[in-house]
Design a protein around this nucleic acid. Sequence first.
DNA 1: ACGCCCGCCTGTAAGC
DNA 2: TGCTTACAGGCGGGCG
Length: 281
Amino acid sequence: MPELPEVETIRRELEKEIIGKKIKSIEILGTRSVRRHDNPKQLIAQLQGKKITQIRRIGKYLLFDLIGDDILVVHLGMSGQLLRAKGTKEPIPEHTHVIITLSQGGQLRFIDPRTFGEIFVTRPAEGNPRMIPAELLHLGFDPLANQISWMQFAAMLSQRNTQLKPLLMDQEFVAGIGNIYSDEILFAAGLRYDRKCNTLSSQEARRLHRSMIELLNEAVQLRGSSLADEAYKDIYGESGDFQGQHRVYDREGLPCPRCKRNIKRVKVSGRSTFFCEHCQL
DNA sequence: ACGCCCGCCTGTAAGC
DNA sequence: TGCTTACAGGCGGGCG
């Protein structure tokens, strides 16, 4: 599923491809993707003719800033793709829910088999200096966009009493980390998924902070992870290359790259969790 | 505040 | 071989 590195890859590509272009028309083929809107026609009217000025990302959300303060928000959920079509005549893939036609710029298609993703139009929350819509105000800091110091991070950890993995995946604490990257970050930091956050030494908190930023940056460099049972593709339909770098995720029974002992798998709040008992304490 | 489960979905794969 | 079941998980909501 697209997490921060995948969404950032898409954001960078969109920045190159569609900034300055105008939305010519929108076609909504299935209403589930636009479920926040009572009236999809209103959404269409709101977007038509608007110029795209900027593409932002907060956590796993993409924000298309439009002329006149409107913001088109896209969340890919589990299986969402945003695919670029050069023309308007390319065949429409199955599970295409929304088609955005751009003035002299082909189309963007929103494809999402599992329909956990969504698209909605909104505006910046009243008086919000960072122009963040109310719907996204609950999100915590973005580990790449708003870098915080390890000291601040350590202070935040010390105030919580939860296990590390659920905290890393809590979008209100830090935005953008899902199941794959939480396991990879914890392995890189040498910390177990079930360590209580407020028991970390300052050295451990610093290691976790550093691992989080470094690992996410490395994953962005390789344009994210595409797994076998997953549908992540960038806007050109290309897979990412970071899956080859996974050290624990989906590697149950395989040797730990560090100590060669078998990678273990457990369930943590219903989610598969992969770790090395020897290297993560 | 925290942990855990459910419901929402569909494609894939394992099990009988 | 063919059907059924489990699994994958982001997110919001609810319950203890």
